[in-house]
Design a protein around this nucleic acid. Structure first.
Lengths: 187, 187, 187, 187
DNA sequence: CATGAATGAGGGTTCATTCAT
DNA sequence: TATGAATGAACCCTCATTCAT
């Protein structure tokens, strides 16, 4: 799977050859087929693993965050940003190669994947409902939060100046700004 | 080119077969080769055309916007959002398939493409410098503005309830919020 | 035809594309087809022209040589060597590309082409018969004379030190040596 | 390789299709690619094998011939003639298709191939130096010896009257005649 | 658990040729 | 005379996959 991840990431699913993956993995072609039933199965395994990990990270973070919408938004953004950095390559694959899942797999996968935006949606709507978030456009705010977090995988360089801690702080700040967070009693 | 756009968009560059494109275009395989020297040439033509159109839209909009950073940000976001809607499929291709340009083409293309984020960068820094934008994170704000505008191509449905006009308004609002725009005299 | 000669010579008949020939000739593809009915026709024209020229050269030389076998051998070798130098590229084509003639053309062409070795054969046999040539192997001598003359086209460099005059002298000498020419009265 | 040899010989490298070779070999197209990485690789394999065999034959023959130039010339001609008969088809390929080697391969191949004429050159020059060979034109004599031996592959018919033994005798005779061999003490 | 061998389908591309203009 | 446009067949090659061992 490591080999598949690297090769898929470098070339893209369709341009990647299963021979390249086998070579990268130090396996013979047939040995690879012994463990995975085919190219598609490798992709599925990668994406499922990535998604499960991400979902779990979010759940844990949200469970610890309690009920406050601001705290929950904070937790969600933190979990997402950290995930995009921690599993940067997998994040890219999830964004780019999901479309190459075959119809069977695709449906269920997308369904599960899209539960998370729904969660974020709820958080923001809660915040709006109780007056913490003043944004007039909760839908677009939610889309933007996701888009900006996802994009991290495309540009972040672990070797650069920006530490993950700082990155998280900044994205949390941006998110709260986006939803126009008003401190309670600040109205 | 229309056929190439549709087929590339539907399947992705590598999964798309030049035979499919020819069929979609109502041409024989060889006739297609008469006009374009190959698959890569089709991709290049598409991406170059898309980029030129987008750059032009931005330039026109910014030229009309004058010097005020807020007005310029407004113009930039408006131009980008409208572009993402007007040429939605091309926008997706530009985002997804640029990586499939061959090294020769890639370099120059990316260079030209990345001039625009630079422009946005300047706008935001100007705004910060003259106190109009209060964001402590101009870099991340700029990345977010781009990310959210780009993402439009992935979800917007012209047939839906949201008109382009409304969409633009909302994204302008979000952008100004992101950079923490303070009305002059509002400090 | 000049273009065809050059392109056929450089790449070989099958590797040469009729587009290359047209480009080399400064013609459009269709204009080329206006003058020659196809690739094969170009080859036929080239080879026929070359053969006719060579045959003519030989006939003229032999007519001037009179009856003496040594003089005739001298004339034949001189004509052949000079021809290989004068039309070096055509000579190469004749040697290499005759096999690519289509069956129709091939038969007649080969028949005419092989009349000349027959002539050489007669010359040598005459010389042997009247005791001028002492070679015990007239057939092999004839084959060798032809082979050595033909090979000239493969290595001779007009820009080199060896002049055509010298070249002819040497090959005449070699030929007479080969047939073991005995000066009359030398026996 | 046998199939490749036959098909290349019959049609020429460029006119030969790799499908024909596969069919002739009783393999599927892909199976052929399993063993040889492509058309060029087949050609290289054939030519290299042929060259190595020929070089080896010459070396063995010369090693057994001792120092006498006449004996060495005899050995060289014998080895070459026998080789041209023994591997007639390969000889034709080597003569005709070497030009279709790609530049990488071509250089080294030609270099190795041309070592042999150099050897012949030395033999003849030795003979001339010690007065055994009286030819005034050692270079041309050498070219002729090679040309006549090489040509054998183009016309010899094993089914004909001429046995290989006779053939060798005659070509040795012609070669010695060409270099104007004088028996020691015959000067 | 691992492999070498084999396959058929399809890939992008080139080509000689034709035809309406 | 000359051309641009078009075609269908064939080309070399790569691929995901299978199977006997």
């Amino acid at each position: 799977m490591r080999a598949a991840r690297d090769v898929f990431a470098e070339r893209g699913y369709h341009a990647a050859s299963i021979r390249d993956i086998a070579r990268e993995a130090g396996l013979s072609l047939s040995a690879l087929y012994y463990y995975y039933s085919g190219k598609q199965a490798l992709l599925v395994a990668l994406l499922e693993d990535t998604l499960a990990d991400y979902q779990n990270s979010c759940e844990v973070a949200l469970a610890a965050a309690g009920d406050d919408p601001a705290a929950r938004l904070n937790a969600f953004v933190r979990a997402t940003v950290e995930y995009r950095v921690r599993r940067q390559v997998d994040s890219l694959l999830a964004l780019r190669e999901t479309r190459n899942l075959e119809p069977d797999q695709l449906e269920g996968f997308v369904q599960r994947r899209d539960a998370l935006p729904g969660l974020l949606q709820e958080i923001i709507e809660d915040g709006v409902a109780c007056g913490l978030f003043a944004t007039p456009y909760p839908d677009e705010a939610q889309r933007t939060v996701l888009a900006m977090c996802n994009a991290i995988a495309q540009w972040y360089q672990p070797s650069g100046d920006l530490t993950v801690t700082d990155l998280v702080d900044r994205y949390v700040h941006l998110s709260l700004t986006l939803v126009e967070y008003r401190l309670p009693g600040d109205r």
